[in-house]
């Protein structure tokens, strides 16, 4: 049986995947220091939860990517983060019952987010809200005053369209 050092396993994981995961984190969390914090959290979580990864459900990278995306969304939705934003420049939108800010992101010129920005507006908004900002179908339906079923169907069409652009 082969002997392997566990810190080599971690190094392997970090060296090969940190760049890609960091890329997606940076597309959701624009401040680089905060993004680095999220990256750290993400790798600690991956390392601690590795036993829960189920290979029959998909690839390892997909599992890690979803951890990274969820951690990024949790960060931007956290109270401390929002408070910081308010203190800086952005004003609340009074017509916005969920305090949902669908601002045109300034960091949409890279990666997945760049591709999403090329979708037609109706589809872009849905992917922006659901994928990059973590809003549920219900929340989106409420804010946009469209039926829940429509949200789901439109998201599906948007994703099919998005895939042709990958």
């Amino acid at each position: 049986m082969l002997q392997q050092r566990s810190d080599t396993a971690f190094s392997y994981l970090y060296d090969n995947y940190s760049g890609a995961l960091n890329g997606i984190i940076n597309q959701i969390v624009p401040e680089s220091e905060t993004a680095n914090d999220v990256l750290q959290e993400v790798f600690v979580n991956i390392w601690r939860k590795i036993e829960s990864y189920d290979p029959t459900k998909g690839r390892l990278f997909t599992w890690m990517l979803n951890i990274a995306r969820n951690a990024s969304i949790d960060k931007i939705r956290s109270r401390s983060y929002r408070n910081n934003l308010k203190n800086q420049t952005l004003a609340d939108n009074v017509n916005d019952p969920l305090n949902l800010q669908v601002i045109k992101p300034v960091y949409d010129n890279i990666g997945l987010r760049k591709i999403v920005s090329q979708l037609k507006e109706e589809q872009r908004i849905l992917i922006e809200l659901s994928y990059f900002q973590g809003y549920t179908h219900e929340e989106i339906a409420k804010v946009m005053s469209i039926p829940l079923g429509t949200v789901k169907t439109r998201i599906r069409s948007a994703l099919i369209q998005l895939r042709t652009m990958l």
Binding site: D7, F10, S11, Y14, S18, G19, A20, N22, G23, I24, N26, Q27, N36, L39, Q40, F43, V44, W47, G58, R59, F61, T62, L65, I110, G111, L112, K114, I115, R163, L166
Partner: peptide, 25 residues
């Protein structure tokens, strides 16, 4: 699809600062 997505995400990889790895360890 997972492979297509992986390719795309890797294409926009951003290397983190060197000290991050140490902090995680």
């Amino acid at each position: 699809f997972e492979l297509e997505l992986e390719k795309q995400v890797f294409a926009s990889a951003v290397n983190p600062p060197d000290d991050v790895k140490e902090k995680i360890l």
